[in-house]
Design a protein around this nucleic acid. Sequence first.
DNA 1: GCCATTAATGCAAGCGGTTGCAGTGCTGTC
DNA 2: GACAGCACTGCAACCGCTTGCATTAATGGC
Lengths: 344, 344
Amino acid sequence: MPSTIRDVARASGVHISTVSRTFSAPHLVNVETRSRVLACAEQLGYRPNRAARALITGRTCNIGLIVADIANPFFPPLIKAAEAQARRHDNHIFVADTNEDAIVEEELVRALAKQVDGVLLCSPRMSNSLIEQLSREVPLVVVNRQITGLPAVVMDVAQGARLAMEHLIGLGHRRIALAAGPRGSWTSKEIRRAAMLAVRGPGRELVITGPNAPTENGGLAVADQIQKSGATAVLAYNDLMAIGLIEGLHTRGIRVPQDISIVGIDDITLSRLTRPKLTTVATPTAAAGRAAVDMLLAYGDDRRTTALINLQTELVIRDSTAPLSSQGSGAAPAVTPSTTETPS
Amino acid sequence: MPSTIRDVARASGVHISTVSRTFSAPHLVNVETRSRVLACAEQLGYRPNRAARALITGRTCNIGLIVADIANPFFPPLIKAAEAQARRHDNHIFVADTNEDAIVEEELVRALAKQVDGVLLCSPRMSNSLIEQLSREVPLVVVNRQITGLPAVVMDVAQGARLAMEHLIGLGHRRIALAAGPRGSWTSKEIRRAAMLAVRGPGRELVITGPNAPTENGGLAVADQIQKSGATAVLAYNDLMAIGLIEGLHTRGIRVPQDISIVGIDDITLSRLTRPKLTTVATPTAAAGRAAVDMLLAYGDDRRTTALINLQTELVIRDSTAPLSSQGSGAAPAVTPSTTETPS
DNA sequence: GCCATTAATGCAAGCGGTTGCAGTGCTGTC
DNA sequence: GACAGCACTGCAACCGCTTGCATTAATGGC
């Protein structure tokens, strides 16, 4: 039904190769011929079949973008920035969601491999070795994971975690909890490493809980452990967990930040709209999306580009952190459980 | 570099057509031959090129999914459900985000058209006529918009809006505001129509504000108008706006639900985690995603399927709505601006 | 006036698969 | 023993498009 290059050729009385060139190398065809062909094409509603073109040129002008969970508000800004950047180079982004499942992840890379020019793998849950193997089948740029030999864009969460810890220590906290992220997350490992290093010191202690689901429910679920841990401050793997955690603590009568300080990571839009507003480590997700696309597109030019882009993070101090209160009772409930709160 | 069907044929000493059949019609090839071919294929790391297959079969086994804004938490459950359902039928979903832009929307449909078997168009911002035109170029299933002659999946937001209004009226509210959605949104029109109908009655009034961006910021921005409107209750186009609105009112010293009641629409995960928890109209987004995929896949069987699936919505009453307070001062600030609040 | 250039177009081979049709050898039937 | 039927495999055309090369005509230089 849809018209092909042959229909246009017949209609305009030229050979199909001339039609082809009209679209992919216009300077090679006579001005008059060109406009005649274009008119016919327009009239027939002809659009080049990109799949067929891809078959022979090897370029699809599509980029695959694989994320662990579209529902995690951390990703959309990255996705949108990548889309915008791709569009700027006349490419399109196909997004796919792995549901935090390493198996699905592998499957999706393979499924996309042949229909895109390359894949951006964001916050992968696969093993490094599998990623290396896949990178031999399709150009890959990894986001939020550092693998030697592979081009990557990472955000310096270690630095962010350190800043967060220093902030908390500066507020007088001594017993600090880390609500870790999911298994297989490079970011979570980085945070953990940096947090341990930053907290190290006399009279200080880091309590690690996890792995946890990187969602509100993950935060909700860890509230109990946090309460029992006696920590007076928490660094959460991400804002979503932090928000869930705040809610979980709230239902237990524990107030944030009076009774316990919470720091998130990511600075999602939402963290400005919760009460209390969330202190968090801002990650440059949009910049990461742009950089990853650029990296992938540059891939073609000189083969083995194994650059690593490391983007800075920064601490945004809002209302979920406060100096260690004098009662120093840790996460134990306040004596009179929050009678001054708004009803909930 | 990647091995083709010819490489496998050479390695296993058969004709390419036999290799082809090994993958697409295994029952036609001898068991021994098949296993030999499979072994060679495995060893060479051969994977059928889906683009090439699509070229001749006309089926890509891919489905395009276009949404207005990935960052809107309304969509992810729909996307995830669609992905799961598609996977069940051995198809893949490509998601693309239009940034609420009708132009980009059209461009994306066209870009996807040739690389997918059909497109799910969610909450389109285009005109009906353009959608009809596009549906002639590629099988289309529209979600959240009803267009005669086109297969569609809609959620009965009109019913939801009616329930919400009845709830508010039942609580004694007489002057109710509607924070409308973006221009071009069918859903917003439906809500408006239903709300007007439901509020109609002696001494009652509906104040409509908008169009507004369907985001937290949209809600934040409309807080001022709402305050001045004197309304004691608001139905927001979606939960995100409702949450932004609550925040905006909060900074103006107006308490929810004591001073003003708010109802959202969508029942996103978040609406259970805000304070106050949001009263909202739950929309069956996951069911919509599944239904849309099923509809699109059924498209092939008997051509012109113009079914319409209308999914029920329901009102979830939480803490952001309350009986009209006796002071009846509407959205005017409380006399002593919320000294009992938690600090923010 | 001849030849080398140049511009414009046609020709045909393929990209990596699928598929209708035509063999080939074998079995079973009468 | 001839033949129909079956299971398997090969052959070759084709899907829609690109591209190196050949062809043609027009142009310019000397």
